[in-house]
């Protein structure tokens, strides 16, 4: 294998690893202090509990890079080229940020120790307390949709309907930035939220804002709807294919992640509850 081929292979491997890390990071609970230390807040968060002015709502930086055992230490900020719009960009923390995450904090739980990638590939220990929702048994269908390059899945049992955008959403005065407005659906005024603003990290939102929403996903009991840039396929998933999330602190909408599909599964009821509390 030539040197160039070797480099390309490594880049591809890094990308895959980076995507896995990204999905894993979604599942991890990052203490508020750490989030603030790693990423200065750009806008008022929607669901941060203690310090709404400074915390970021949905950003979960990768705490550490997993390095293969034999690999030399990677540069502080490797370039991760992500081809296509299906693949989300990955936040790679700078060295000082990673150190900030590792600094012991009295109140926080024991930091999780990352296992090397080789071990991860062999076994993915599921937390014992991870609960599989009833609707996921014995298997379930989910609709894949795209928001600003991020791939999400919504279980069909939790999906009310899919409506084309068609400029029928009316902005309301003084509405928050994460809300597109109201649209009339079967005689009801449904609130349409900017999914990208709620789900994507702050630094990816501006990029996503340029994408015109194409579809509206009405979820739950039809009170809320989410915008998306593209609707994909319906996939059938077994509960074992999903890495279910155990703690829902910062991202209650996240039910779990699917590595096979490189997507995050949404809990639409929790999402609606979260918006109702906002």
């Amino acid at each position: 294998m030539s040197k160039q081929n070797l480099a390309e292979t490594r880049t591809l491997s890094d990308q895959k690893q980076a995507l896995w890390d990204y999905l894993d990071a979604l599942l991890q609970e990052v203490p508020e202090d750490d989030v603030e230390a790693a990423a200065p807040a750009a806008r008022k968060p929607l669901f941060a509990e203690p310090e709404p002015e400074t915390a970021e709502p949905v950003r979960a930086p990768v705490t550490r890079l997993r390095q293969p055992v034999t690999e030399p230490p990677a540069p502080a900020e490797p370039e991760v080229e992500v081809p296509g719009d299906d693949v989300p960009e990955v936040d790679v923390p700078r060295e000082e940020e990673a150190e900030a995450f590792e600094a012991p904090i009295a109140d926080e739980p024991e930091p999780q120790i990352e296992t090397p990638a080789a071990e991860q590939a062999v076994e993915h220990p599921e937390p014992a307390e991870a609960e599989v929702p009833e609707w996921a048994e014995p298997d379930f269908q989910a609709l894949i949709f795209h928001v600003g390059g991020l791939k999400l899945a919504v279980p069909l049992v939790k999906l009310h309907s899919v409506v084309p955008w068609e400029e029928q959403v009316t902005p309301m005065p003084n509405q928050p930035g994460w809300c597109h407005g109201l649209f009339n659906y079967r005689g009801h005024n449904v609130r349409v939220v900017d999914t990208a603003a709620l789900v994507l990290p702050a630094d990816k939102r501006a990029e996503a804002a340029a994408d015109t929403p194409e579809q509206i996903l009405v979820v739950g009991d039809g009170r809320w709807a989410m915008s998306c840039t593209r609707v994909g396929d319906v996939v059938r998933l077994k509960p074992g294919e999903v890495k279910w999330r155990t703690a829902r602190g910062q991202r209650p909408w996240l039910a779990g992640t699917v590595r096979e599909k490189l997507c995050a599964v949404m809990d639409t009821e929790a999402f609606a509850d979260m918006l109702d509390r906002a």
């Binding site: 929607l46 309301m172 003084n174 509405q175 928050p176 809300c179 407005g181 109201l182 005024n189």
Partner: peptide, 21 residues
């Protein structure tokens, strides 16, 4: 006249009497 659902901001819902489709 439908009551305008609150879109997360009390300030806005304060002066919106309702919406008509």
């Amino acid at each position: 006249i439908d009551t305008a659902p609150n879109v997360g901001n009390e300030d806005s819902s304060r002066y919106i009497y309702g919406v008509v489709s």
